[in-house]
Design a protein around this nucleic acid. Sequence first.
DNA 1: GGAGTTACGCACTTTGAGGTGCCTACTTCC
DNA 2: GGAAGTAGGCACCTCAAAGTGCGTAACTCC
Lengths: 144, 144
Amino acid sequence: MPTTTAAQQRAEAKLSYNAFLEGCPSRQLLARISDKWVALILAALSDEGPGTEGGGEPRAMRYSELSRQLTGVSQKMLTQTLRALERDGLVIRTVTPTVPVTVTYELTELGVSLQQVMRGLKQWAEAHMDEVFVHRGDYDAREA
Amino acid sequence: MPTTTAAQQRAEAKLSYNAFLEGCPSRQLLARISDKWVALILAALSDEGPGTEGGGEPRAMRYSELSRQLTGVSQKMLTQTLRALERDGLVIRTVTPTVPVTVTYELTELGVSLQQVMRGLKQWAEAHMDEVFVHRGDYDAREA
DNA sequence: GGAGTTACGCACTTTGAGGTGCCTACTTCC
DNA sequence: GGAAGTAGGCACCTCAAAGTGCGTAACTCC
């Protein structure tokens, strides 16, 4: 028997996750940005493409344009992720009934503010991830 | 046939993910903090418990202590996550050969600096997630 | 008149993160 | 001498996120 049974843990969780677990806004935010393509879509829509080095000016993009920039994304996941972002008020979807229908996506003000935070992550990553990789190498070398 | 076949996309990805996809440090960082328990462990180790409202002073904690605070975590996941964080140089594991062996975990300097960034996320969440929830409600209401 | 484009929808399948249960060695307490 | 606590290891299972394939409506171009 483990220190506490699974049933006990579940029961406790139901009572005490009120402020620190599951339902709290921070967890929800993490769940959002953890989606595989969310960060990339936000980055693309704020013009942080690979070659461009844009100043981060928010920019409207077409579905096909996004699909080209996010190399490897499936059409299903792109649509699904964009819908989720639209639902959360982070992007706006605009349909223009042209010859073949044109759909553009653009960051909202809320989306832009979130992207600012994501930049903080990016900066930390650029500053410290190499250090993390060194640690990983050392750790793995010690194991072998 | 979709606009590009899956095989084509894979081939392109292999050539062009150098700076914007997969291997880039930002993605790696996201993968780390997306682990279900990472954020909570970092928070606990920097004394951001639910009732305490600690000032964020980094604090060494025992395995069992963490297990109690992170309501609902399984022993396997706690061990697994702690090992990953140790491997990345974000926490230090200290074994003291007392009566029953005592193991403590503590944030490294690197871990503390990451936790700072996580606080940025937390602050955005506290400031804007309610707005997101409103958007969700509106969106869902329109659908029905 | 058939091929191509845009922006998807739908159904099926796969993959891996996470969960669960069962096990340990050592010691101390009652 | 059996129960309990500490810090895990190991093997199996589940389920949801992500991927794959195929279809579509409307129109246009050649």
